[in-house]
Nucleic acid binder design. Structure first.
Lengths: 204, 204
DNA sequence: TAGATTGTTAATCGATTAACAATC
DNA sequence: TAGATTGTTAATCGATTAACAATC
């Protein structure tokens, strides 16, 4: 049974937060404390954990380590997935830093770029390939997720190519709208649109 | 009357798209064509424009130039707003590039960073200041929007300071959750969470 | 008139939250 | 028992979309 989108978002955040919390050596946590740290409603926490199928205790709250494990099992589906970064400008570099410095269930195993300066070098241990290696590397390394940033090449062409090679999830950080076949999941974020929303709602 | 969030997002995208479309010298456009280019439902377009108070013609569709102007007036509230970037790592640089290369109603007029390499230089014409200038520059340049990226300093302290100086909209690109007083609008994007969502839903 | 399009309402769907029973 | 918390249902709210009248 598939979890709602927002529940998945929050579960991922509960886990991130609890990973740090557990060093406080408190073995249990109440929904209201978890909620306060994430600035959300405690009912959200309890409902999300109910959907996860995780139970707490009326007197002690939720077992921190068990909850971390339970979320990990559900979200990681047992094993980490391989991802790649396409386009190695500032956005691509920012993304790589985040994945290099933090434990996440996704492992970035390849970078693709057109610039001669980057190609054939490694960054945080991740090799950068030229664009014409896209198909080969994605297939060889069994990469299923792609983080798409502004690249010099035509995005539609890149998109068709990577989907043909086995990419089933794309995070599109460019301003270009992509037309995807069924079976490929898309997540998008457009900085420009976010700022315009901000400008509008901050003065309402 | 305040527009729904999603309508504001789409209006901003209609405008971006039409700015390019108008060079095709087609003075009018139908809702279905606009919708197809943005991969959305034509009803969305018509409903959004209804909420904007913009009318089309049954035979010709919508006047492109008039629609661009009408969205601009609504979203820009008459004048561009000043924004700043706090933290000038890769994320901050990626953002600056986007705002330098594209016309948007938001003008980035200051960058703040701790690194001696960046401070006192200008990037795409935008000056970079040291963090201790935050309060002064925000007040002097009448900056109301802030784009927050990972910085060395404590984010809670920065947040309290900039709100006291007049910031009313924050785009938080860090993984830290911010607690904001009423009257300050918040927009957030967390790359890690987005990738985890992608990993989960791409295999459902 | 027939066909295509706009404009608008009502139905549907998902996310949030109020309410409250059950439990410790 | 009283008080606090979990677990769950039902109500509410916002976003999407189906349906259709009005218009060219």
């Amino acid at each position: 049974m598939t979890l709602p989108e927002k529940t998945v978002e929050r579960l991922s955040q509960y886990r991130q937060l609890l990973m740090r919390y557990k060093y406080l050596d408190k073995p249990h946590i109440f929904s209201k404390d978890l909620a306060r740290m994430l600035r959300i409603n405690p009912v959200h926490v309890r409902r999300d954990l109910m959907l996860l199928g995780f139970s707490g205790s009326h007197s002690k709250g939720y077992d921190v380590q068990k909850l971390i494990d339970s979320i990990a099992i559900k979200l990681e589906c047992g094993a980490g997935k391989n991802g790649c970064i396409i386009g190695f400008g500032h956005t691509g570099r920012a993304a790589l830093e985040i994945f290099a410095e933090n434990f996440t269930p996704i492992k970035i195993v390849a970078i693709f770029d057109t610039s001669a300066k980057s190609v054939n070098n490694t960054f945080y241990g991740t090799p950068c390939y030229s664009m014409d290696k896209l198909a080969n590397v994605i297939e060889e390394k069994k990469i299923t997720l792609a983080l798409l940033t502004e690249a010099d090449e035509d995005l539609e062409t890149i998109k068709d190519l990577i989907i043909a090679c086995g990419i089933i999830g794309i995070l599109n950080l460019t301003h270009v709208k992509l037309d995807l076949p069924g079976g490929v999941y898309l997540e998008e974020f457009d900085l420009r649109t976010a700022m315009i929303k901000l400008a509008y709602f901050s003065t309402q």
